[in-house]
Amino acid sequence: MGMLKIENLSAEIDGKTILNGISLEVPAGEIHAVMGPNGSGKSTLSYVLAGREGYEVTGGSATFHGQDLLALDPEERAAAGLFLAFQYPVELPGVGNANFLRTALNAIRKTRGEPELDAMQFLKIARERMKALSMPEDMLKRGVNVGFSGGEKKRNEVLQMALLRPQLAILDETDSGLDIDALKIVADGVNAQRAPDFSALIITHYQRLLDYIIPDRVHVLVKGRIVKSGGPELAHALEKEGYASVQEAA
């Protein structure tokens, strides 16, 4: 059974239809990529799944382990095991990164019935994970994403994923703004999560991240619907031929 099952999902923002009947299923343990040109609805898909306000679902459904995802608050979705790595991670001046990460981790642990971590326990875990992502330790002391470079912000997203250990990670254009070294670090971070109960939906415009995170399936999103699905080779074909051919098909 699919961990994430999207059926005929339609959504609009300010009366404008963005998602136009998407159907997509991500089985447990698989990594799927959603590729598409600008304006095809990629980010809207990730926001609708994560529960951001301002989007109106006008039809269809999205379930996560059989549970109606769209009926849950964003924090309930996170507690259920869904994680969105933001395309544009939000800056939180005045909120320390360590405090933020620990609060989030403890909120998730609480819903799992696990004991909360005190500051020392948390720091030990955080330092290990940060080392793996080549993140300087002083990023814990700074405000969340404040003064971070583009690459640091994306690494901070992957750090959060590594700490929260979601079952489904949606990576929204995580490759944008990354140089090749940072891209490899981020890909390693995602690959390290690979497990029979971990799935990921990688949303991207370009194929290059998929050189490092090999997807099981690739879906092409155009004008709010999936127009083509295939194996990893589809990403390469798109890279060569561009989106023009599939756009015509839509």
Binding site: A50, G51, R52, E53, D73, P74, E75, R77, A78, A79, F83, L84, F86, P89, V90, L92, F100, T103, A104, A107, I108, T111, Q160, L164
Partner: peptide, 11 residues
């Protein structure tokens, strides 16, 4: 900002 925090599981 509020959505970002909630998306991380914070009520």
């Amino acid at each position: 900002q509020l959505f970002y925090l909630r998306a991380r599981g914070i009520p």
